[in-house]
Structure formats: C-alpha cells, structure tokens
C-alpha cells in the first residue's frame, strides 16, 4: 500500500524516501517469514523415533487426571482414536486384550486419547469394546497437535526413558503386533517404527 502512497501522491520528481523503501522490504520479509512458518508447519513430518516424547496430561472420562510426567520409568502406549473412525474399531479389541495382558505387571501403561469426538458417542464406543484402560478426550486437540498426528488411529509408544520408541499410523492388525513391540521394549530392545 505504501508504495502507492508515493506512486500516486508524488507527482513531483522527489525521490522515494528511504523509509518507504525500508518499509516495503520489511513488509516483504515479514510476509515471507509468515509463509515460511506456514510451510514449516505443513512440512513437519511425524515425530521421529528416539526424540523425547511430548509430555501431556489427560483428563479421563472417569475424571482422573493422568500426567505422563508421573509415569516415567514405564512403557506408555498412547493411542489416538475417535468413535467415528471405522479403522479404529478394527484394533480396539486387540488393544484391550493387550492391555489386560500387561495390566497386572504395572510397568506398561495404555492411554487412549479421543480425538475430536462427542462425549456420549465416545463413552458408547468404550462400552461397546469393553475398554478398561484410561481414556480421555483430547481437549482443544492439544495432544494431537503435540504429536502432530495426521489422522486416527495412530499409536505412539514411549520408552521407560521418556523417549519415543515406536510410532504407527493406521490400526494394528493383530494383538501380536502390539505384543511384539511392547515385549521388545520390556527386554530392552528398541523396536523400530513402521
């Protein structure tokens, strides 16, 4: 706009003032900076294996508050799901079965993060698949943003040292797939992401 100020207003042969030139280039740089920010956001891929996993707190549907920071030393499986998501249903039973396998030992924690969902439908879903591990809504999608998920279902496994050990997009095909990864981590191996 400011170029035009000068373009139009100055019919005389006065030079364009320096401040106008500086302003024009500043605006240009600001615009490019903004676009760069947008580009970086859109290009940000999934979290990489081995980096410290983002910390979050989850308020479950039963009203408990789970803070990931308090769970250090345990293996944490974070599963993003939604009741409107068909593929999520494919893995729901497998996840619950795996949870029951580890529940007693206490060194493995499962957390379900419910992405953009209505509460009544979510509760109905949990009931339908008889899910017993802690589940809670992802308020304002803040956890999903932290993990930069690209859809549901997505699953992340955090190792005892607090770093990300495993990431999966799409549903687990069987309970064996989950067990292989979790058991591998319990034995001290770092599972590879797929």
């Amino acid at each position: 706009m400011d170029q035009t100020v000068e373009a139009a207003a100055q019919q005389t042969s006065r030079r364009l003032p320096t401040w106008a030139m500086v302003l024009a280039f500043t605006l240009l740089v600001a615009f490019l900076g903004l676009v760069y920010f947008g580009l970086r956001n859109s290009m940000a891929g999934p979290l990489s294996i081995g980096q410290p996993a983002p910390k979050f707190t989850l308020q479950t549907f039963d009203g408990q508050v789970v803070d990931v920071r308090d769970l250090e030393g345990k293996i944490i499986l974070v599963n993003f799901w939604a009741s409107w998501c068909k593929p999520c249903e494919d893995e729901a039973a497998a996840l619950e079965e795996a949870w029951r396998r580890y529940q007693a030992d206490g060194d493995v924690v499962f957390l379900g993060v419910d992405y953009v969902d209505t509460e009544s439908e979510a509760r109905a879903y949990l009931e339908k698949f008889n899910i017993t591990y802690p589940n809670g809504p992802d308020l304002k999608s803040s956890i999903s943003d932290l993990y930069n998920i690209s859809g549901v279902p997505e699953t992340y496994i955090i190792g005892p040292d607090g770093t990300l050990k495993y990431a999966k997009k799409g549903p687990f095909l069987s309970i064996n797939e989950i067990i292989m990864v979790v058991d591998g981590l319990r034995q001290g191996n770092t599972g590879a992401g797929s």
């Binding site: 939604a82 009741s83 409107w84 969902d117 209505t118």
Partner: peptide, 9 residues
C-alpha cells in the same frame, strides 16, 4: 460421521 455426531450433540 464426525460431523453427524456433532449435530446430534
């Protein structure tokens, strides 16, 4: 489906 659930809400 997600939006249908929202409308139900």
């Amino acid at each position: 489906v997600a939006c249908a659930q929202w409308r139900q809400q």
